[in-house]
Simulated scan of single mutants.
Amino acid sequence: MNQASDMSGKAALVTGAAGGLGRATAVALAKVGADVCVVDINPAGLEETAELVRAEQVRCLPCSVDLSTKSACMAVVAETIETFGRLDALCNVAGVIFFNHSEAMSEEQWQKTLAVNLSAPFFLSQAAIPHLLEQAGAIVNVSSSAAFIGEAYAAGYCATKAGLVNLTKAMAMEYMHKPLRINTVAPGGMMTNIVSSFASMPKDLDPGLMARFKPLRGMVEVDDVANLIAFLASDAASGYHGACVTIDKGITAG
């Protein structure tokens, strides 16, 4: 896999960092020298991540924030700038999924999915772009293989992840002539805390339909995806702009 370039003296912001892919991404960035602001609604998990980041001899700013509102997104970027004095990479990793029959999905679940998976990456980008332009930085969004294949009982998740891919492309075109790179990563299934959502699924879902998006080659390694995100966040990925890089062990191949 391509390796991230040295990010010593640079700063990154990673959402969903209390565990899973967000934590692995924060550590991957720390390993190449970046100071990292780690964001999540889980303060205990966030502190564990902060310890791992600081073990790489870089600074870490843990922010326990619910990113469901624009004001929260703006505030966490402002705190990052106040602490580190700069921002070189925004990694929008946080995501939620609710498995349910479409007709039974509550308005609260729908709005939460939109807020975390799509609105938060946009509002964080709004706040971060002026600072990223100063540093010729990067935005890396995390979509999903669900952006490209229909997954039964996950309409909200699929819709928001597909939206995130095209949001990435639209913003990449807008900033085509500016010193900012905007890309997205689309992983297949991983063993992360988002898998715990399976435990709360209604019992009457059709297992045959669920099996259609089961990876034939197994789950994707979290660290592989984290390293890809760190690479795209670094100057080593200078040729990537407006790209959606799939890392799904072939689940979207056919």
Rank of each mutant, 00 (worst) to 15 (best):
T192E: 01
Q109Y: 12
Q109C: 11
F122Y: 04
E134I: 14
P121A: 02
G189K: 15
M191R: 13
M171A: 03
V142M: 03
G137Q: 12
P187G: 02
L124F: 01
M176T: 14
K178A: 10
G137W: 13
S125I: 01
P179Y: 04
M173A: 12
N183D: 10
E108I: 05
P179Q: 05
N193S: 14
Q111A: 13
Y153E: 06
P179A: 05
L118W: 01
M173D: 09
N193G: 15
N183Q: 10
A147Y: 09
M171L: 11
A154Q: 13
G156W: 08
V165H: 10
E151C: 15
G150R: 11
Y175W: 02
L124N: 00
V140G: 01
Q111F: 09
E107N: 14
E107C: 11
A138P: 09
W110C: 09
A115T: 03
V116Q: 05
G156S: 08
A152N: 08
A128N: 08
P130M: 09
A138Y: 08
L118A: 04
S144W: 05
E151L: 13
M176W: 12
Y153G: 03
S125Q: 07
T184L: 04
I139K: 03
Y157I: 05
V185L: 02
A162Q: 11
A136D: 13
L114W: 12
L132I: 13
E108D: 05
M173E: 09
N183W: 02
L180S: 06
E151A: 14
K169E: 04
V185S: 01
G189L: 15
Y175I: 05
L124C: 02
A128F: 04
I149R: 13
F148M: 11
L124E: 00
N166E: 14
A155W: 08
L167D: 03
A147S: 14
L124Q: 01
Y153R: 10
A159E: 14
L164C: 10
E108W: 06
G150A: 10
A115S: 08
L180G: 02
Q111E: 11
A146M: 13
T192Q: 07
C158A: 14
Q135E: 15
K178Q: 12
S145V: 11
V116H: 07
N141F: 00
Q109I: 10
L180K: 09
G150E: 05
L132F: 12
G189W: 15
A154M: 12
M176I: 14
P130F: 11
G188V: 03
A136Q: 14
L124T: 00
E108S: 07
I149W: 08
M171F: 03
S143L: 04
A155Y: 07
M191E: 15
P121L: 04
K161E: 07
L124A: 07
A136K: 14
I182C: 00
A155N: 15
A120I: 00
V185W: 01
A127M: 12
Q126I: 02
V116K: 06
L180A: 11
V165L: 12
A146Q: 09
V116N: 01
Y153H: 06
